[in-house]
């Protein structure tokens, strides 16, 4: 699996156009395909989950495409993936909504994104779930430690069309730690609601991906 270099392009388009999931501002922006894989089942922090999902299969979404734009002090990411059975909300006791997240190292030291960070090396994530009005800002220092909070500076806008989700995240650039010239590691996760995926049962990007700002 090759390393992915994602360059955020500076854009002077209207912010409204950038925030629109099918906005024209995204037309000429470099797009990267990121391969996804199921999270390792043996890392699920519950024997029940490991047993119950042993033969079920999770991480059904195999790839996504991502683009990045900077607009003044804002970083916007557009994530797209195929979803022929969209789950747009939690509309039943046994229904799970489609969701996606993008995570970054929170501190100067590079955190292990695959394990949602570790003690002393936290990650931050932007988390969108279909059917919710606002995305969550998430901090975590290891599997099972995610803490959500409402972040009024963080936005997410979504659209499902032609059997694909398009989700645009937009957040303050200075909330991310761009300490090195090579940018920061970034990772992705998609939850397939039709497959009852939630918590650590998801497709994640196991390969290296680096976000740089042009």
């Amino acid at each position: 699996m090759t390393a992915t270099q994602l360059n955020a392009t500076s854009s002077e388009a209207d912010l409204e156009d950038i925030l629109a999931p099918n906005g024209g501002a995204w037309n000429d922006i470099d797009s990267k395909t990121v391969e996804l894989a199921p999270t390792p089942l043996d890392r699920q922090p519950s024997a029940y989950v490991q047993v119950a999902w042993k033969d079920r299969g999770h991480g059904k979404i195999s790839e996504l495409t991502v683009q990045a734009i900077t607009h003044k002090d804002t970083l916007a990411l557009r994530i797209q993936w195929a979803a022929d059975q969209p789950k747009r909300s939690i509309n039943d006791i046994n229904a799970y909504a489609d969701a996606c997240a993008v995570s970054f190292s929170a501190g100067g030291d590079e955190a292990e994104l695959q394990t949602m960070g570790s003690p002393g090396k936290p990650v931050v994530a932007w988390h969108w779930r279909a059917g919710t009005e606002a995305p969550f800002s998430v901090t975590a220092s290891g599997i099972g430690t995610a803490e959500r909070s409402a972040d009024h500076q963080l936005q997410a806008h979504s659209r499902w069309s032609d059997e694909h989700w398009q989700v645009v995240f937009a957040g303050p650039l200075d909330s991310l730690s761009f300490s090195g010239a090579d940018g920061i590691p970034i990772a992705f996760a998609i939850w397939c609601g039709a497959n009852s995926e939630r918590a650590g049962l998801k497709a994640h990007s196991p390969g290296s991906c680096q976000l740089t700002i042009k």
Partner: peptide, 14 residues
């Protein structure tokens, strides 16, 4: 001693 997978019914069954 091993967990048993469970089902979660929907609102029609609850």
């Amino acid at each position: 001693g091993e967990p048993v997978a469970g089902e979660l019914p929907g609102k029609a069954e609850w």
